[in-house]
Design a protein around this nucleic acid. Structure first.
Length: 1063
RNA sequence: GCCGGAGUGGCGGAACUGGCAGACGCGCGGGAUUCAAAAUCCCGUCCUGGCAACAGGGUGAGGGUUCGAUUCCCUCCUCCGGCACCA
């Protein structure tokens, strides 16, 4: 019997043997080695296609089933494109620097270089199991010195560049670009030539007429250095970071909880300013936005990037401090004799500059708020308020961003004792500090308009500050507010009634009572208000008494109370202006009127009001139209060991220079102890990066003087910002990449990866690429022309009645998705959750492959559902795809003899097989082009279902069939291809074409409806015209019977689909 | 709170541009083969009623447009993702 079994098994599909054979074949022959232009074997007549995966971070846990989803997809696409005659670049590498490796190393006390090397080997072995057609000769790891040599070189490019916002130039694609990174030497040349000057604060200005401007030649060397350093694309600045002394490191915001404690260990975390490397990504904000429309990316990802950049338009306005400035002879004159010039947006000592998106609400500014970190706080705070202010600042200082956000509901703040003057009406308004104003956005100061902004409204209510309505709301808003207020229940509560009534009918009576009472009451009130008062009068009431409406109107409407008169009374909304200005509150009076005169916005719709006030501000000089971005510069240094060292040297006098290209890479020192240095748990201690302890490494003698290296390292994102360029020419020792090869392969035709990189990696990489583009190092303005996000693979988990979540090993499956806990027998429900160790639902791809093979694994992951949606792994479904492989095998191979099946013939194929084949080719081709692999595989199933029962099978069907199969199940396809007598790999065999005529059946089944309901189905010739279809429909027995005597009133015919009879 | 995306059988999912809802796979039921099992092959499988022919209902809920709606419009509910005091 065992003999028989062995005999039987001889010709069975043996995935392990087949896959091993072909993986060896590909490797030995170098099947997927891709030559660059100019290299032997390169065929310039073929089009190119660069297909890239987001390279993995090799963690200790190994590859999980989520990784291969994208890799399978790109592999199918790459194999398909090769067969379509493309030169395909399809590489793989490892993102190997970073925090997890270091953290793991700290836990196990093994050097990160060792663990990383081990993990990469594991990942490589796992990846090779899948039979991906990568050109492994191009493999790279970001932690290899030959690689990070150029990461450092690119950092140098940024360090040695400045951003010229006004440079208009033509890119290689012939389109104009505004703004350009340029070598710092060009800036020096411009300064030397006197085209640029330096202002009092050592800022480089373009023309700089007067006002403390100095020439380059007048500056001391240290001043020159300082001025240049401020303009570099990579610069050092002191910014607040989350510093955890106990852990000896700076933490990311996400690593700090709301109590200012570290997530790991619960140690105290302090906000403290620290000198850090920063990259000037904000200079590229506009270009990162404006180049987005041309990219073939998922719209939601583009939107996320747009939101991240966060462009807004509005105006910058300066508010003079009340005791420092006065209006005289139509100018703002400073009481400080040292300040001779009048107040303006370019020159504003003793004044607060704000940014607003709603300059039209300027008349409603009743107070100002400075961020607690704002430099002016110190200057303006009056002695009586000093203690409160200091205390508030201290509290805000240790609050992290997370904590600030967490208690966003409660507005806090303190009065500084100082006042500013509203430049549009001379109104004296108090200056507060509050942490709802952030130093990092705009100017770190706001004009507060409680009548037009929700946050300002809440703050004003909390601190009893005046509220002036400056925009008359439209009727819809009034009615909505009235409903909300009159009902006394908001809409959610009403919906709750509905829900309870629906889901818990036992409370129906109570719900009905409540609803009747409130409905009666509110309906009455609203009706009374509407009838007797009317929306116009109500709007008027809001305009007069916004404080009693519970919310500010923040939308667009018509300007009112702008200007308001001095008594605080309001003008009507009909545009009547208040003529004479008298500002008794303004110190020193307003002799000669307010600078700029009266600006009357009353009656103007918001957009026009914005325009008018902006023009007025510009004419008066105290403001101008402005654009602002949420995007902040990129904090680029970490106090870590396992990252790229900075290629710079610090001099004893504070000078920072870059290391010569010839001396790159600056390699990480060998260190026994690479842990962060823990230090005393006080706020005043400073982080000491591990590299600082490599004393010998840190010290560099150069030209007779002593320099110090930078002890920081670059963040994990650095290496992934340009790896796609290195793949093009990975072994080049002279340059990061050969320009001709770069020009040939870029840009990337398909980039597949998870949506978790929607902003950070994809934004950082675009930024680096644009810098390289500006400096002439790359030929395209964008790296990733087409992007696709694969969905997450989820797992099942089970929840019992008490809400406890159990691992899958705790349950038993009954039919029909009924589950019980194995231990207790209690019924449990299945939920879909992320795969995680704690839920014990992580699936290991190695196991699946050893049981069913890589081809089955690939088929399963691609067949689960659409590539971009999240879907749960269900091991139960895997054998179905294994069965498909076996069925395909049996189409070719006789399992008894292990020879080609006797059913195989060289004869002409039968019609049904031929049609099945051509339909499949068409569907699969179309689906691959659109990355719809799940339906492509369904088409393969359909074809196999047709071929299986056939008594004979023609080679003329089976050969193209194998080719179509190849991208999905490459090992199986190669094996069958060779069994059919082919010697060469099918990897470059031309993709079969389909015959359009054979994809269409001669007769099609159509539906015959009467009044839209299907009453019969009939067959008609595929090319039947409308008259023929109508005729056939009417001739059908069932239809004739259903119609009876009366003829239909109207007949609708859809060719090839249906006939609808209306009676 | 704001901005996206999605809700279809027992399960994963399919459906071109408004045209027969449920392709394909899993699971389940039945049959053939087998001493038996595995494997394989064939048939059935949205729900309700009926032996059946057939009838009625059905794409998160409600409404609308249309001869016709999973698809378009409005209101609402649920789930997932992102951002979160951005002036």
């Amino acid at each position: 019997m065992t003999e028989l079994t062995r005999q039987e098994k001889r010709g069975r599909y043996d995935h392990a043997a087949v896959e091993a054979r072909w993986q060896r074949f590909w490797e030995e022959r170098g099947t997927f080695r891709t030559p660059n232009p100019g290299e032997p074997g390169f065929d310039a007549s073929r089009p190119k296609c660069y297909i890239l995966d987001m390279f993995p971070y090799p963690s200790g846990a190994g590859l999980h089933v989520g990784h291969p989803v994208g890799y399978c997809a790109t592999d199918i696409f790459a194999r398909y494109k090769r067969m379509r005659g493309f030169n395909v670049l399809h590489p793989m590498g490892f993102d190997a620097f970073g925090l997890p490796a270091e953290q793991y190393a700290i836990e196990t006390n093994v050097h990160p270089a060792v663990t990383t090397k081990k993990n990469i080997e594991m990942y490589r072995r796992q990846l090779k199991m899948f039979g991906f057609s990568y050109d492994w000769s191009r493999e790279l790891a970001t932690c290899d010195p030959p690689y990070y040599r150029f990461t450092q070189w690119m950092f140098k490019q940024m360090f040695e560049s400045w951003y010229d916002e006004e440079c208009r130039w033509l890119g290689p694609d012939g389109k104009e670009v505004v703004g350009r990174a340029r070598p710092i030497s060009e800036l020096v040349a411009a300064l030397e030539a006197g085209r640029f000057g330096i202002d009092a604060s050592l800022k480089i200005v373009r023309d700089g007429k007067g006002r403390g401007r100095r020439n380059w030649s007048e500056l001391a060397p240290a001043e020159r250095r300082q001025a240049l350093d401020k303009r570099r694309l990579a610069y050092i600045d002191e910014i607040p970071v989350s510093w955890c002394p106990a852990l000896g490191t700076v933490l990311a915001n996400e690593e700090v909880d709301n109590d200012c404690r570290s997530e790991r260990g619960g140690h105290p975390v302090f906000r403290r300013p620290l000198r850090q490397w920063i990259l000037r990504i904000s200079a590229y904000a506009e270009r990162l936005l404006s180049d987005l429309p041309d990219l073939d990316w998922p719209e939601p990802i583009k939107l996320m990037q747009r939101n991240w950049v966060g462009r807004s338009t509005g105006a910058e306005i300066v508010f003079p401090l009340a005791d420092k400035w006065r209006a005289a002879d139509g100018l703002w004159v400073c009481n400080d004799p040292g300040v001779k010039q009048p107040l303006s947006i370019d020159h504003h000592p003793h004044a607060i500059k704000v940014y607003t998106t709603r300059p039209d609400t300027l008349f409603g500014a009743t107070y100002m708020v400075l961020a607690p970190e704002h430099p002016l706080v110190e200057q303006v705070t009056t002695p009586p308020c000093r203690a409160d202010v200091d205390q508030y600042i201290e509290a805000a200082r240790c609050k992290t961003d997370m904590a600030r956000t967490a208690d966003a509901k409660e507005k806090t703040g303190v009065f500084t004792g100082a006042y500013a003057l509203n430049p549009v009406n001379g109104e004296r308004i108090p200056i507060w500090i509050a942490d709802y104003v952030l130093m990092g956005y705009g100017t770190g100061a706001i004009m507060a308009v409680p009548g037009g902004d929700t946050r300002d409204y809440e703050f004003a209510r909390a601190f009893d500050l005046p509220i002036i309505a400056v925009v008359k709301p439209p009727t819809e808003w009034i009615e909505e507010r009235v409903s909300v207020m009159a009902e006394g229940l908001d809409q959610k509560a009403a919906a709750e009634c509905e829900r309870v009534a629906r889901e818990q009918p036992e409370f129906a009576d109570e719900v009905a009572q409540v609803r009747a009472r409130t409905a009666n009451l509110s309906a009455k009130t609203i009706e009374t208000l509407r009838k007797n008062v009317g929306p116009d009068r109500l709007a008027e009431h809001y305009v007069q008494h916004p404080e009693s409406w519970g919310a500010a109107f923040i939308g667009e409407g018509v300007a009112v109370n702008s200007p308001a008169n001095a008594n605080g009374d309001t003008t009507s909304a009909n545009g009547a202006t208040t003529s004479a200005f008298d500002f008794p509150s303004c110190q020193g009076g307003m002799k000669g009127g307010l600078p700029g005169g009266v600006c009357d916005l009353n009656g103007l719709p918001t957009p026009q009001a914005k325009e008018k006030i902006t023009r007025w501000l510009e004419q008066t000089g105290v403001g101008r139209g402005a654009v602002n971005y949420k995007l902040r510069d990129w904090l680029f240094s970490r106090q870590r060991y396992w990252g790229e060292p900075f290629p710079v040297l610090h001099g004893e006098d504070g000078e920072t220079i870059s290391v010569d290209d010839a001396k790159l890479p600056v390699e990480l020192p060998e260190m026994e102890d690479f842990r962060p240095t823990p230090s005393a748990e006080t706020a005043d201690s400073l982080p000491e990066p591990p590299l600082a302890r490599a004393k010998h490494w840190m010290r560099v003698e150069r030209n007779g003087s002593t320099w110090s290296r930078d002890a920081n390292t670059m963040p994990q994102w650095a290496g992934s910002c340009w790896y796609y360029l290195r793949f093009i020419d990975p072994h080049n020792t002279g340059r990061f990449c050969d320009p001709a090869a770069e020009n040939y392969w870029m840009s990337i035709d398909l980039y597949v990866g998870g949506a978790e990189h929607a902003v950070l990696h994809l934004l950082y990489a675009r930024f680096w690429h644009k810098v390289l583009y500006d400096l002439g190092h790359v030929s395209t303005r964008e790296p990733f022309r087409k992007l696709f996000n694969q969905g997450m693979i989820q797992g099942f988990a089970y929840r019992d009645r008490r809400g406890m979540t159990l691992g899958p090993d705790a349950v038993e499956e009954h039919g029909h998705e009924q589950f019980v806990a194995r231990a207790t027998g209690e019924p449990v429900t299945r939920i879909i959750a992320k795969m995680s160790k704690s839920l014990k639902n992580v699936v290991n791809p190695d196991q699946v492959i050893s049981e069913y093979g890589a081809d089955t694994f690939r088929l399963y992951e691609m067949y689960m559902g659409p590539l971009d949606s999240a879907k749960p792994w269900n091991t139960r479904d895997v054998p179905g795809l294994y069965k498909l492989c076996q069925r395909i095998w049996r189409l070719f191979i006789d399992e008894q003899t292990d020879e080609l099946s006797p059913a195989l013939t060289d004869a002409e194929p039968d019609d049904a097989s031929l049609r099945a084949l051509h339909k499949m080719i068409k569907r699969v081709t179309d689906d691959i082009e659109h990355l719809k692999f799940n339906t492509a595989i369904a088409a393969i199933f359909d074809c196999v279902n047709t071929l299986t029962p056939m008594a004979t099978r023609s080679r003329k069907v089976l050969e193209p069939f194998v080719l179509v199969l190849a991208p999905f199940t490459p090992h199986l396809a190669e094996e069958l291809w060779s069994r059919l007598g082919r010697v060469e790999s099918l990897a470059y065999t031309p993709w079969p074409a389909h015959d359009e005529r054979l994809t269409r059946d001669e007769r099609v089944e159509i539906a015959v409806q009467i009044n839209g309901k299907v009453k019969s189905r009939i067959f008609v010739p595929a090319d039947a015209d409308e008259a023929a279809m109508r005729h056939a429909a009417m001739a059908d027995e069932k239809i004739a019977a259903a119609l009876g005597e009366k003829p239909p009133k109207k007949i609708i015919v859809v060719k090839g689909r249906l006939v609808n009879l209306l009676v």
